[in-house]
């Protein structure tokens, strides 16, 4: 991990704090709701393929979702990965959650917030 990634990662954390502190967004709630959507078998069901802290019996088709801020300094890129994983890898097995309307816009936002805390 480079210094640059580290600082931008920290920057994002700071930004998130500030947004929730001053922007009036209930960020803790969003993260909790995002976790629910991500773990729900009928919604994200992300655990079927990814190890995620706090989830039981994960599959191992995708990489463990850890250190997300370092891997995705730009949160919008993370959201896009969840929205439509086929953009980055046309052959991916990961479902295009937004593009195929598996999740709503709002749910993709919530899941992104949750995943970003990992």
């Amino acid at each position: 991990m480079t210094i640059k990634q580290l600082t931008s990662g920290t920057g994002a954390v700071l930004l998130l704090c500030c947004v929730s502190l001053f922007g009036g967004i209930a960020s803790a709630d969003m993260v909790a709701d995002g976790k629910k959507v991500a773990f729900d078998r009928k919604k994200g069901n992300c655990l079927s393929c990814h190890m995620i802290a706090g989830g039981d019996l994960p599959g191992n088709i995708g990489p463990p979702l850890i250190a997300m801020k370092a891997r995705f300094p730009d949160k919008a890129v993370l959201r896009q990965q969840i929205w439509d994983a086929t953009e980055k890898n046309p052959n991916t097995i990961m479902p295009p959650f937004g593009k195929h309307r598996i999740l709503t816009e709002k749910e993709v936002d919530l899941v992104t917030e949750f995943i970003y805390t990992l």
């Binding site: 393929c49 019996l57 599959g59 191992n60 088709i61 086929t86 097995i93 479902p95 195929h100 598996i102």
Partner: peptide
Amino acid sequence: GQLNMACADCHKFYAGNKVRAD
């Protein structure tokens, strides 16, 4: 399908991996 997966995804490219506990 809505989940956009092929038979080959599960039974060829990821055969031997786990979907949840399966």
